[in-house]
Amino acid sequence: MAILKRTGFAVLVMLLGAGAGAAVLSLPPEWNGLSDTVAARLDESGVTNPVTAVLLNFRGYDTLLEICVLMLAAFAVGSFVSERRSAGLGTGRGAAETSGQGHRGVELPIARPGRVLTGLVRLLAPWIILVSGYLLWVGSHAPGGAFQAGALLASLGVLIVLCDHRLLPRTASWLRRVLLALGFWVFAGFGLVPLMFGQALLQFSGPAAGWVILGIETACTVSIAMVLLLLFVCNARLPSLDADADRARGTGA
């Protein structure tokens, strides 16, 4: 019976794949889509990279909601783990009162960072920041942009956290939260301004459009980096993430 079920399902999946494959093959093999339309109106968008123009200007509303999704994910993950320790987002009280409790979960077996890791991070940090700034800047006319820059910045954050587990607990909780929401606020704020002048939401045009988009992207870079770093830290549950937990164990510096 089990084997019948398995085979039956495999056949079903193959039928699904065949159907979708046939549909894909039935599409016209040569087709320009919206590329001509985008190219024709690229001048009005304030940037010269068509993908950035679509992301931040033509379909900026999608990106606004997407920034929301990121913020929400960081908050949700933080809320899943904060009952045991204030992993990044907890406001402190609940975490402080429970950090003494035993923790049955598996922790990452991270040893004290050696000189190699610390030295490497010291060496890499300025370069990563520089390249991330470059990616942010170059996004307006070549592949790059807020997400790439933010991901790179987050990787630096991960490296630093691996070297010094108390990086996040040392930053004030409110600052972490503000950085998390900054991208959304700046995006929504810039988006709402045209509304006051009788234009549409997120209507960026004219000579200032490029600068507005750069401002939004900068704020989003910071928020995206913060979100990704928090997602890593919360899910990894580093051994000494929480300064209070450290003190309870007597390992705090």
């Binding site: 919206l34 339309t37 985008v38 109106r41 200007n57 033509f58 379909r59 900026g60 509303y61 999608d62 234009q199 549409a200 939401l201 997120l202 209507q203 960026f204 045009s205």
Partner: peptide
């Protein structure tokens, strides 16, 4: 209907 960003279809939302 309201075109976000003022672009309208097919470019905008």
């Amino acid at each position: 209907a309201s075109a976000v960003g003022g672009w309208g279809s097919p470019l905008g939302i």
